[in-house]
């Protein structure tokens, strides 16, 4: 997926200013940056939830707007934080929605197998018949991930997946992200607030400041004292744990 000269304005104010980058396939890429830097807006545009003002987002050498929605849904799945479901759904029914782009509501034998596998992968078997509004936040998040797995896409876009989760569930979430990439070969792109999660669990980092890409590169290239101090305007110390750069700020 390649983004070039992406621009978005809200009421005359430019929130995303000629952003260009190329997302490496089969890797985990995190978008980080201070509030209002435009990372979520960029995410919204590459996941076609927000209309772009100008620029190109090419996905498999074709502009995103040229794709048929149904076909694109077989290649690219999105998970945002607006998951307020107003109906009685069991975990299994939710996961089954992942097959919608393929079979449009009529599940085939193959779909059922894929749903079973997704549920097993997220270890949700014991409550697959529970209603999702009866689950805890962490369990519900896993159910949604299982739906994304059932959707069987090459690309997975996650908008702040650790939002509203405690430390235990956040780090579990990040481990799942890693597994999606390492075990299932997915390309995962996520917006993150916690720099250390980004540093520890991603391969590439794209840092935004004022609607522009400030730094894009591997974790070691981006997570340095100078870079982070520039991006966040705060003093940083970098320490290495498990050969990963972790940042301390105060």
């Amino acid at each position: 997926m390649k983004v070039s000269d992406l621009i978005k304005k809200y009421e005359g104010k430019t929130v995303v200013d000629s952003v260009s980058f190329q997302l490496p396939k089969g890797k985990v890429t995190s978008l980080i940056g201070p509030n209002g830097a435009g990372k979520s807006t960029v995410m919204g545009m590459i996941s076609r939830l927000i209309a772009k003002d100008s620029g190109m987002i090419s996905f498999e050498d074709r502009d995103l707007s040229g794709w048929n929605s149904r076909e694109l849904a077989k290649k690219l799945a999105i998970l945002t934080q607006h998951n307020n479901v107003q109906m009685k759904l069991t975990v299994r029914e939710l996961v089954a929605f992942g097959r919608f782009p393929y079979s449009g509501g009529r599940l085939t034998e193959e779909d059922e197998t894929i749903i079973d596998r997704a549920i097993a992968y997220m270890e949700l078997e014991s409550f697959e018949h529970r209603f999702i509004d009866e689950l805890s936040g962490g369990q519900r998040q896993r159910a949604y991930i299982a739906m994304v797995i059932a959707q069987d896409t090459e690309y997975i876009l996650l908008d702040e997946p650790t939002n509203n989760l405690d430390i235990y569930h956040s780090s579990n979430m990040m481990k799942i992200v890693r597994r999606l990439c390492d075990e299932l070969g997915k390309t995962v792109i996520l917006v993150l607030h916690e720099i250390n999660y980004a540093a520890f669990y991603s391969d590439y980092i794209c840092a935004f400041v004022n609607g522009k890409v400030a730094k894009f590169g591997t974790v070691d290239e981006v997570i340095t004292r100078e870079n982070l101090s520039q991006i966040y305007n705060v003093d940083f110390e970098i320490i290495r744990i498990n050969d990963k750069p972790l940042s301390v700020y105060y």
Binding site: S47, L49, S69, A73, L79, T80, N83, V85, F97, P101
Partner: peptide, 12 residues
């Protein structure tokens, strides 16, 4: 019923 974001993600 899953909401706009999820509906778009599922190809609607």
């Amino acid at each position: 019923a899953l909401g706009r974001d999820q509906a778009v993600s599922l190809g609607i």
